[in-house]
Design a binder for these strands. Sequence first.
RNA 1: GGGGAUGUAGCUCAAUUGGUUAGAGUGCCGGCCUGUCACGCCGGAGGUUGCGGGUUCAAGUCCCGUCAUCCUCGCCA
Length: 611
Amino acid sequence: MTATQVGASWRRTHNCGELREDHDGAQVTLNGWVQQRRNLGGIYFIDLRDRYGVTQIVLPEDLEAEVKLAREDCIAVTGVVAKREAPNDRMPTGQIELRAATVEKLSTSKTPPFEIEEKLDTAVELRLQYRYLDLRRPDMQRGLMHRSRFIGAMRNAFLKREFAEVETPILTKATPEGARDYLVPSRVHPGEFYALPQSPQIFKQLLMVAGMDRYFQVARCFRDEDLRADRQPEFTQLDMEMSFVEEEDIFAAWEGVLSETFRDSMGAEIPTPFPRLSWREAMERFGSDKPDMRYGMELIDAGPWVPHSGFGVFQSIVEGGGRVMGLCVKGGSEGISRGNIKKLEEVVKTYGAKGMAWWKPGLEGGAAGSIVKFCQGDSGAKLMEVMGAEEGDLCVFVADEEPVCWKALGALRTYVARTLEMIPSVDGADQGGSGPWNFLWVTDFPMFEWDAEPADGGKPRYVSQHHPFTAPDDWELAGDPAKMGSRAYDLVLNGWELGSGSIRIHRQDTQAKVFDLLGLGKEEIEMKFGFLLEALSYGPPPHGGFAIGLDRIVALTLGMESIRDVVAFPKTTAAADLMCHAPSTVDPHQMKDLFIQHADLPRPKEDGSKS
RNA sequence: GGGGAUGUAGCUCAAUUGGUUAGAGUGCCGGCCUGUCACGCCGGAGGUUGCGGGUUCAAGUCCCGUCAUCCUCGCCA
């Protein structure tokens, strides 16, 4: 009998994770992969693995000699369940074993390039090349299972709240601004291109105009930008939009959905409502629009000290409109050596600061630091007061334009917290799911940013901080664009930006004014957004929405640092798929069909690289 | 586009100041072993030191270039 026969007896009666003592004596068949073999001579053990667990199989040596089992062979085993002579309490199925009467090979396996085991120590490159083997590992399967449960729970939570799941096009229209688009040439329309959506933004707004009222979608989004541990060129959002709402309605909806999702998918309780912080306050206190509030060490305005310091460099920066800000690292005098201070300096320089001053306060002559001579006597006492510092602390300072101070010190705060292990460890879905889960709404983002060097080489201009469909605080857009507030908000979890959204512009006149402020010409507006403006002239409802990065929240809830481990088939930092070798060249006739040809290509790869 | 790290056996790593035949663990193959579960014991095979060039009597080691992977700045509305 072969495995391919219809009605063959190889089909499993149980999975590899479910047999227990009360199955003792039962005749069963298991299917799975050979995880491990132990040949004791005369008696032969194998651990049989599937997605549900591992069960020990015992077989007489002569039976093994017939089938010749190798690691990762896919087999069917039939026999009788028996209590073990020597139980293994570390395995859920450890009280029993399956005494094999017959073993059938369903397929054989070559020796795998790495061992299929939970503990992992293999180069990412190899794991990605053999992703189907990597995904056989139990921890990877648990990650994908958690992802499936999490998204399922979230979907249910939205459905329960009257949200309708609607799919939007993948082949769509290029939008200006924002990230680079992935383009798809059209065969039917020579010389024209579709773009893959960076998000379903405009479609979901049009669904509101259509009166769908409450929409959501598990939406794949595409952005042709450089990658990071938390960024893939294609990623998944839980995208939603609601009509007749303001900010608090959106927040409440998400707080409900998220607390339900955490409870249903991982048994975790998260307190609601989430705290809120204005963008300005987040920047001022944490130097980041996605602050990790699981620890303190907030930024401190050292401005009040500067007039007392007699330190010309700081004074002239303040007079020039800049700021002097700092951090006080409690106990940092001991914890951070001179060499480490050099590291801190490198960190702030990475973020555009010209330098970093530091000071270890010491009342009895023990003070040290690059600015110690300006911290004598009253000046030092004043500085300790401003910084809230005591002997044994380390104070660091950045003096620069406000955004530089924020950014550099915000990054430094994270770096120091990591170095000094101030960040609490997270119990993910695997470890009871107790977190801590530190959610935060960041609100009141600026409406516009000044772009001095547009990537397209165009003239300096304002760009939308969020996107051009975000409602301003003032529908009339009166006053200085640089100071205008918007109705955009972000959701932050443990220092990661999880998602963003806004109340949208539902007034055609306001939308037209925003396009105008962004420097778009009449023709350009008509060509790119004519259909949106047209739609806004047919009674659009006030509406707003939000989208959350599912890859990120799934990774975070597993306590992982990289979203690659919760994406089944991820791409490398060079946006390549090492398994199927995408991207790749195509046949010339395919290009001819699409009316495209190569411009000058960079020199082709000459090394022995596999792709 | 910029900065940093890494690249040695199938896998994870070692190899002193540039110096003899590039080692170990694991996996793989063969043999022995009837209660193992990281089974144990004995034996064996396995190397373009990412790729290309250079310096040198001599390069895994030094220099230049290049490729790949990871981290990161810019970028990511």
